[in-house]
């Protein structure tokens, strides 16, 4: 199987005042294409930092991050934007929808950035909204939707460009248990269907059960890796 993400001896040190805080240390890992991975840890364990590094939002202090054979820790801001545009989808904890835009306009955003013509992107966005079960809320603004619905819009937005990798940062952090389950079902089923790599960061072990592999992060290190046996 093709390896999509490779981390070699990644270390990340933050400087807080005069003190150095080691957020990540000696992280090595490979993630395969189409794999669903979860990073689980308490707050401050460094799991979010890891996600940010993989998404190119932060640079490691040391080590290398190779995604799709690109050394993304060496890419310029401009190339990182292009990289995200071409390969990466994002799902956030607080949805991060544009408050002034409707659901379909929000879903369209990544396609607008790619320069896809309006007719095509609208069609794709509507199709995507339908896939997340929101065909009735196409024209709704985020404030007119529940948290679960907003997160569905967020998921639609992450997947609309058909990216190879989708990063989800605590996607269920603001949702109740039932909705969380629905959202996770949705997100994993889409990723599986399209053979997309999904990287989820969560503190909730129940959510982590959706993954193929679970990485337990503690104090900036990978404590252990668990391969989840699927019952079916």
């Amino acid at each position: 199987m093709e390896t999509v993400i490779v981390l070699n001896d990644v270390r990340k040190v933050y400087r807080v005042g005069n003190e150095k805080v080691v957020a990540l240390d000696s992280v090595n890992l490979n993630i395969l294409k189409g794999e669903i991975c979860c990073f689980v840890g308490t707050s401050g364990s460094g799991k979010s930092t890891l996600l940010h590094l993989m998404a190119g939002l932060e640079k490691p202090t040391r080590g290398s991050i190779i995604i799709k054979n690109m050394e993304i820790h060496k890419l310029s801001e401009r190339k990182l934007a292009k990289f995200r545009q071409d390969y990466v989808g994002f799902v956030f904890q607080s949805y991060n929808l544009m408050p002034t835009l409707t659901a379909v306009e929000n879903v369209c955003l990544p396609l607008i950035f790619k320069g896809i013509p309006k007719i095509i992107r609208n069609r794709r966005a509507k199709k995507m909204l339908k896939a997340v079960g929101l065909e009735t809320h196409i024209k709704h603004k985020p404030t007119q939707m529940s948290g679960g619905q907003q997160q569905r819009v967020g998921i639609a937005r992450a997947f609309v460009g058909n990216p190879e990798i989708v990063f989800a940062d605590e996607p269920t952090g603001n949702l109740d248990t039932k909705t969380s389950k629905e959202v996770m079902d949705l997100i994993t089923s889409i990723a599986k269907k399209n053979n997309q790599t999904l990287v989820v960061v969560t503190h909730d072990i129940e959510i982590a059960r959706y993954a193929d592999r679970i990485f337990y992060i503690k104090d900036g290190r990978i404590e252990r890796i668990e391969v989840v046996e699927k019952s079916n």
Binding site: A81, K82, F90, N96, P110
Partner: peptide, 16 residues
């Protein structure tokens, strides 16, 4: 600020 950040994460080019 937040909006611009989201745009960046969603792959909006700096020049845009």
């Amino acid at each position: 600020t937040k909006e611009i950040g989201i745009m960046k994460v969603l792959g909006c080019m700096l020049k845009d």
